[in-house]
């Protein structure tokens, strides 16, 4: 079979697909360096919009909130998600498939449904909306993702090491912390980074559970976008996209790592 026959047009098609995926992001980044405020015509290169960003107290405040939320949500969801992955890997019990199905639900449920159901919940139990409610919501949607990533790692793990540790007299507790966890570590860190990214970037759910005072970066961007396209939004977006991309690249490396 002549390979080139059908791969050639496929190559073109696929390249176009990648162009489609990345061109808009590249355009966004390019225009964050353009001096012109309104026009799409390229004028001159400038750092001005970035300078305006770091001098904007509202943006900095939103950044602070986003970092707090993402870090706390990351820590909690990584612990809970890892425990869950381990529990599901290690034990068999009745209703396990139901449990599995329930963990699948937050992934398929539209974000807007999650957002409004939580806002109803918090209003009904009379809990004030703010950073805490954002964190609670983020942990809830991060857990299944962490669980899936750690579980994939567990399935590829060498189980004989755990058995060896037990045979040599270590109890289950020691084995878990000294053998299982170190083996899973790259997966756990990757899951943590992705949980951080998901939380840092989340808009829809945060939009509903944030209340008035607690603005995160995506909420800030949205309120700026409502007023129209501006180079300052381009700059802020470019920074966030590049930041996410670096975290994801590290996470990807870690996931591929062999122990």
């Amino acid at each position: 079979m002549k390979r080139g026959d059908y791969l050639k047009p496929l190559d073109w098609f696929t390249s176009a697909g990648y162009l489609f995926l990345y061109l808009p992001i590249c355009i966004l980044i390019a225009f964050s360096f353009n001096t012109s405020r309104f026009s799409v015509v390229w004028e001159r290169f400038t750092w001005e919009w970035y300078g305006r960003l770091i001098r904007d107290p509202l943006v900095l405040d939103a950044l602070k909130n986003s970092v707090i939320v993402a870090i706390v949500a990351m820590i909690l969801s990584t612990i809970i998600g890892t425990l869950t992955a381990y529990g599901l890997y290690r034990y068999r019990f009745r209703g396990k498939s139901v449990f599995d199905g329930i963990l699948f639900l937050p992934i398929v449920t539209p974000e807007i449904v999650v957002g409004i159901s939580l806002v109803i919940f918090f209003v009904m139990i009379k809990y004030n909306l703010g950073l805490t409610t954002i964190i609670i919501a983020h942990v809830a949607f991060d857990i299944p993702f962490v669980m899936l990533i750690v579980r994939a790692r567990l399935q590829g793990m060498d189980r004989t090491l755990e058995e060896a540790s037990m045979d040599l007299g270590a109890d289950e507790w020691t084995t878990f912390f000294k053998v299982t966890i170190p083996q899973l570590l790259p997966g756990i860190i990757a899951a943590a980074l992705l949980a951080f990214t998901l939380s840092f970037d989340d808009f829809v759910i945060t939009f509903f559970v944030a209340g008035v005072g607690a603005t995160t970066l995506p909420l800030k961007i949205y309120s700026m976008v409502r007023l129209g396209v501006s180079p300052k939004i381009n700059a802020l977006s470019a920074l966030i996209v590049l930041f996410s991309i670096s975290l994801i690249t590290v996470a990807d490396r870690l996931q591929r790592m062999r122990v």
Partner: peptide
């Protein structure tokens, strides 16, 4: 190639949608 497909999945929908407003 796979990584390049997955990458956008983890970045903000809001920002990627906004990019189309520019265009």
């Amino acid at each position: 190639l796979l990584f390049l497909v997955v990458l956008p999945f983890w970045t903000s929908d809001l920002i990627r949608t906004y990019a189309w407003m520019l265009i």
